[in-house]
Each structure stands twice: as C-alpha cells, then as structure tokens.
Amino acid sequence: MKKFLDFLPHLAACMAAALIVITILNGFNPLMAWLTSRISRIFIFLFCAVVLVSSITAIVRNSRR
C-alpha cells in the first residue's frame, strides 16, 4: 500500500502529461473527438481520481509531520 501511495504522484504527473498531449491533438483536429469520446471522459475521470487520492495522501502526511 505504501509503495502504491508513493507511486501515485508519478502516475498523476504522467497522466497530466498525457492529457496535455491529447489536448494539443484535439486542437489540431477536434473532429477526432480527442477530448469528447467515451474513453477520453473515462481517462479524465481517472486522472481526477488519482490526483484526488494523491492530494489527500500528501495532506495527511504533511499533517502528521
């Protein structure tokens, strides 16, 4: 569990980078539904969930310090 929580910030950063790439691609061709397709919405939801858990973990660790 600890390893997983330590890995979450990395995962959040990587997903953020991937989302930036997808957003740029969407700017070039929005008709390909880079940000509006079902898989895109799932990806954005997962990204938000990872960021949320990672943030809560960081807040708890800071409060314990």
Binding site: A13, C14, A17, A18, V21, W34, S40, F43
Partner: peptide, 21 residues
Amino acid sequence: GMILRDILLVGIILVVFAFFH
C-alpha cells in the same frame, strides 16, 4: 532514472489511450 521511468509511463499511457480510442 526516475524521469526516464515517468516518460516511459507517459508513453505507455498514450499508447493504451490510442488503443482504446
């Protein structure tokens, strides 16, 4: 090594996304 690992992870995420998209 950590940066390389994260870049690799970004690539994996994009490939998985492209596969499903």
